[in-house]
Simulated scan of single mutants.
Amino acid sequence: MRKVFVLAVWAFISLCVVAIITLPVNLQTQLIASLLIVTLMAIIKLVDAGGEVALDCARLRNGGGAALCLLAHYRNIAAHQPA
Rank of each mutant, 00 (worst) to 15 (best):
A11R: 08
T39H: 02
Y74N: 08
Q28D: 01
C69M: 14
A8Q: 00
V4D: 02
S34I: 07
A83M: 07
W10H: 05
T39L: 15
Q30F: 08
W10Q: 04
S14H: 06
I77M: 00
E52P: 06
V38H: 00
A66S: 12
I37M: 08
Q28F: 15
N62V: 03
A19K: 04
V38S: 01
L7F: 09
V17K: 07
L71M: 15
A83S: 09
A11K: 06
I20V: 15
G50F: 04
Q30S: 13
P24E: 08
L23I: 10
L40H: 04
L36P: 03
I44T: 13
A79K: 13
D48E: 14
A67L: 00
D48T: 10
W10I: 11
A66I: 13
N26V: 03
Y74E: 12
K3C: 04
A78M: 09
C57A: 14
Q28G: 05
P82E: 03
N62W: 15
R75T: 11
Q81V: 09
L15W: 09
I43W: 07
G50Y: 03
G63W: 00
Q30R: 15
N76D: 01
V4L: 12
G51R: 07
I20D: 00
G51K: 04
L55P: 03
R61S: 02
A67P: 00
R2C: 02
P24G: 05
L60F: 01
D48R: 09
V18F: 07
V47N: 05
A33K: 00
Q28R: 06
R75Q: 12
G51V: 04
L7Q: 11
T29M: 06
R59K: 11
L60D: 00
F5C: 06
V9K: 08
V9Y: 07
V17Q: 10
I21G: 02
F5L: 14
A42H: 10
A33L: 13
L15S: 09
L31N: 02
A79I: 07
G64H: 02
L27T: 08
C69W: 13
L68Y: 02
F5T: 14
S34K: 04
Q81A: 10
P82T: 05
L23W: 06
S14L: 09
M1S: 12
H80A: 09
D56L: 13
A49R: 15
S34P: 01
N76Y: 04
S34C: 10
A54T: 05
N62K: 12
N76F: 09
A42V: 12
D48S: 11
E52I: 14
V18T: 13
V9F: 12
Q30M: 15
T29P: 01
T22M: 05
